[in-house]
Design a protein around this nucleic acid. Sequence first.
DNA 1: ATATATATGTTGCATTTGCAACATTTTGCA
DNA 2: TGCAAAATGTTGCAAATGCAACATATATAT
Lengths: 210, 210
Amino acid sequence: MSEIFRNISEKDKCKLLKTLEANTHTFRKNESFFQLFKNDKMIGIVLSGNIQIIKNDYEGNEILMEDLEEGDIFGNTISSIQNVEHNIVVKEESTIILIDYNHILNCNIEKDYYLTFMKNLLEIVMHKLQEKNERLEILTKKTIRNKILEYLKIMRTKHGSRFVYLPFNFKDLADYLVIDRSAMTRELKYLKEEGFIAIKGKRIEILYDI
Amino acid sequence: MSEIFRNISEKDKCKLLKTLEANTHTFRKNESFFQLFKNDKMIGIVLSGNIQIIKNDYEGNEILMEDLEEGDIFGNTISSIQNVEHNIVVKEESTIILIDYNHILNCNIEKDYYLTFMKNLLEIVMHKLQEKNERLEILTKKTIRNKILEYLKIMRTKHGSRFVYLPFNFKDLADYLVIDRSAMTRELKYLKEEGFIAIKGKRIEILYDI
DNA sequence: ATATATATGTTGCATTTGCAACATTTTGCA
DNA sequence: TGCAAAATGTTGCAAATGCAACATATATAT
């Protein structure tokens, strides 16, 4: 079950969703639902499945902006999906809840489960913020090498191991780091040759300190 | 007065700060207070002044990560200021409030002002998220030209005018866009020559559509 | 007012990187 | 199993960009 309803009973959850005028939707793989987001401040919460937000710029570059799984939230305010460039892709059958953000702020229920909901939402938003920060840390590095090393550093810190298991394939990793895939492969090769890392499939071993 | 206490009376505000064990600090220009952040999940709220978070990497690059003014929040979770690379610089005399994030989550006051506080905090965090997204939108562009154009596009949307007034100098703008300053000047010159923009001091006029 | 520091503008050049085009490997599906 | 599609690896080359080294302009302090 999603973090958003942590410590809220099934009964209270239903009441809450009714008050917030929230809608639950299920989408099949490759289905599109961008139109649901045309209105202003909608927040989506992924209950199950996998949804990606991909940016296609006019030059044909594809950038993975968000890779959403259970418990993740998304929306205009949370990710930038306001314009035509952004594509919402349902990677596998997914269930989401849509809530108007204004309803959350203007809602005046004096119930403890509402406060709990707010705490949960804050936690999720904070987590999202941290994710964005991580990516910003990477993208503020100027060279391909430093972007890769920063990524590995973050992953190592996060999982407390010098073995980094890539959560996506190399193509998507290059998109995430905003670098050319072949240039990334090239740099990874140099890093291997210089003994900084070892690669075995999607597992990268970090062989240096600091 | 900061957004964080919107709709909260002075009296309730004092009670709240006491319950959350919040501390108010004032710092003079160029003073440093990084040590206050050594502990884990602290949230800082800027009540007045101007504070910048600057990243210095080992290659000597200086990147402006945050430019904080009244109402802004900062902290480990909000910005990445966990490691030695990050420098907190007080640009002008500033007053801040420091709160342990765990106190916010574990606090169990059943008062309406606490819910109001949570709503305000959520609003601020959401706003921060939007700022991060804007920067990510820029940094996911691959060329200097597209980064500049994306920046101008965002500023135009934000202020609803084709006249963009830079909130910082060109050096800091280059840092924000994570590009070399002279290379940025060069590209701006080309954009001027090609009739896309006109520059007069810190005012850039956008001369194209879309 | 003058000096000093800082910001901005300019340019040649070396390096990095993206791009294209291809080979090879792996994966997914009929 | 076998075939097609996707992912990964490789490399030469052109283009973009960082860097250095300046000149000039502007701001700040004394």
